[in-house]
Structures are given as structure tokens and as C-alpha cells.
């Protein structure tokens, strides 16, 4: 968590307005990708649709991959982390990584993965 601040030595204005936000069309394309991914996710539920989803591990791996990509797309494009000062992203990622690590250990202590 703390690494987010240790590197913060920006003394100069990072001009927020200097870059152009992407056009609406880019946003729509991102949304289409998100929609497509959601569609694939839902397909895994219908096991008969795609035979290899009968295997639980394949399903879970696919779902987790798609989830992470969706998460990433929303955070980077819609939440502008791509364009913004990296400090913002660090604050968020600090919480995200810490939460993931702590709660994975927490679930491990309950032998959740067994």
C-alpha cells in the first residue's frame, strides 16, 4: 500500500487537460467488447452450448480471465486510469491488491480452496 506514496515526487503540474479523452466511438467500442465478454461468460452457464465448459476448471479459468479483462477495461478506459496521473491508479490498486491478498489468505485459513 505504501509504495503508492513513496514514489510520489511530482512537483510539477501534470496537466490534466493536456490530453484528449478518447472519442465517444472508442467508448462504444469498449462497451461492445464488454458486452461480448459478458455474452461469453453467460454461455459458460449453458453447459450444453460449449462442451468444454463441462469441465469446471476450464469454466472457472475462462470466467476469471474474462472478469479480470472486463475489470481492467472499465478501470482503464471508463475510469480514465489510462490517461490520468498514476497516483490515482496507485491508490486504487493498493486497496485492490491488499484486499485480494488479505482475503485470499483469509479464505485459505478456512481451507476454502480445498
Amino acid at each position: 500500500m505504501t509504495d503508492t506514496v513513496t514514489e510520489t515526487h511530482l512537483e510539477h503540474d501534470e496537466d490534466h487537460g493536456a490530453h484528449e479523452h478518447p472519442s465517444d466511438w472508442v467508448y462504444i467500442k469498449i462497451a461492445l467488447i464488454l458486452a461480448l465478454f459478458t455474452g461469453i461468460e453467460v454461455l459458460t452457464y449453458f453447459e450444453s452450448a460449449l462442451p468444454f465448459f463441462e469441465n469446471n476448471s476450464v469454466t472457472i479459468a475462462t470466467l476469471m480471465f474474462l472478469m479480470v479483462v472486463k475489470f481492467y477495461l472499465v478501470a482503464t478506459w471508463f475510469m480514465h486510469l489510462r490517461f490520468d496521473n498514476p497516483i490515482f491508479g496507485r491508490m486504487f490498486v493498493a486497496g485492490l491488491v491488499l484486499a485480494t491478498a488479505v482475503y485470499c489468505i483469509f479464505l485459505s485459513a478456512f481451507e476454502f480452496w480445498a
Partner: peptide, 9 residues
């Protein structure tokens, strides 16, 4: 953003 980091937990 700081607040959102907290919300993750």
C-alpha cells in the same frame, strides 16, 4: 480514488 481503495476492502 483513496476512498475507492478503501471500498475494495
Amino acid at each position: 480514488w483513496t476512498f475507492l481503495g478503501s471500498e475494495c476492502l
